[in-house]
């Protein structure tokens, strides 16, 4: 199944989803494609005016361009999602979209999809880490 992860650039979540046999809907591949695309010339992310306008599908024109630009990338991933894992209260090193308003809207859009969703807090000690991984494992194994 295609599993959207939040934060979408978390390498740990991406790895866990892959390990348990599913396809992560993560940002890394999209960013890699953009960074390496020789046709585009707006480094480092190669986001263009057109991309930001694509974001209008998810957020209105009054919304800051940075939010719309981010949603131009995350939005299509959310559209594809068949399941989702949302981690709350994570530090920037775990994954970071830099913008709190984008975070709020992204979580709302995932919840609106009504797909099987696992929501959990970022672990702060070893015991919580074990529980964190175990819950993700059970969730992913239970997806058909």
């Amino acid at each position: 199944m295609k599993v959207f992860i939040y934060p979408p650039n978390s390498m740990i979540l991406q790895d866990l989803v892959e390990r348990f046999g599913h396809t992560p809907l993560a940002l890394a591949k999209e960013i890699e494609r953009r960074v390496n695309d020789p046709e585009l010339d707006s480094p480092p992310m190669n986001i263009t005016e057109i991309d930001v306008k694509i974001g209008l599908k998810y957020a209105a024109i009054e919304v800051p361009s940075g939010v719309r630009g981010r949603l131009a990338m995350f939005g299509p991933l959310i559209d594809e999602a068949q399941a989702a894992i949302i981690v709350n209260n994570f530090p920037s090193t775990f994954g970071c979209m830099a913008c709190a308003r984008t975070n709020e809207l992204t979580i709302y859009l995932i919840k609106q999809k009504k797909v099987p969703t696992l929501e959990l807090d970022y672990p702060t000690n070893e015991e919580e880490v074990e529980d964190f991984v175990s819950r993700i494992k059970s969730f992913l194994e239970g997806l058909k």
């Binding site: 480092p44 992310m45 800051p64 361009s65 940075g66 630009g69 981010r70 913008c99």
Partner: peptide, 11 residues
Amino acid sequence: SCGNDYSGIQK
């Protein structure tokens, strides 16, 4: 700055 990369204006 914030939002510059995702607004595509860094260049």
